[in-house]
Design a protein around this nucleic acid. Structure first.
Length: 156
DNA sequence: GCCAACGTTGGC
DNA sequence: GCCAACGTTGGC
């Protein structure tokens, strides 16, 4: 059984359209520097899992579409690159601290499902995204939440 | 641009 | 181990 995840990205940095335009419509999801999110990337996320692509710091913030995981957790190369903004001098190749996954474009929603719409839907009340103070950039989504949001996004 | 909430760091 | 200071996230 596939599992489902929500990944946040600021669309000014990398949007669902950028993913759709990327080589092979695939990208490496790197640069995550939070331990709880790292644990999901390293230990939980599997090939074939579904991804809700969320635009944070956007107007309005919204789930913009879906992607799927095409490569499970592996050491994030940017942590070893001194020229990269995500460089972590405390991490070694023997014991990498940070992990990445690869995702491929699936679909852009006909209707981006906005944060107010998510909040207004009783079926989504338990979403991690909607919890007070929740800032996790990689978070689990239930199968029911996935189904519901996909349905909302398919609306014209 | 503001600021609440959260995570990390480092002195003690 | 505590906690103040600082940095980041992300909605508004």
């Amino acid at each position: 059984m596939p599992r489902y995840w929500l990944l946040k990205s600021e669309p000014e940095a990398f949007s669902i359209d950028d993913l759709a335009r990327a080589k092979n419509q695939t990208t490496r999801w790197d640069g995550v520097r939070n331990y709880q999110a790292r644990n999901f990337l390293r230990d939980e996320i599997a090939v074939g899992d579904g991804v809700l692509f969320y635009h944070s710091n956007a107007d309005p913030p919204a789930v913009a579409g879906t992607a799927r995981v095409v490569r499970a957790g592996y050491p994030d190369p940017t942590q070893f690159d001194a020229k990269d903004g995500h460089h972590d001098p405390g991490s070694t190749s023997d014991a990498p601290r940070w992990f990445a996954v690869d995702i491929a474009f699936d679909a852009k929603f006909a209707h981006a499902v906005t944060l107010p719409e998510l909040r207004a839907d009783p079926a989504l009340a338990e979403m991690v995204l909607l919890r007070k103070g929740s800032r996790l950039s990689v978070q689990p989504v239930s199968a029911a939440e996935w189904k519901r949001i996909s349905k909302l996004g398919a609306r014209e």
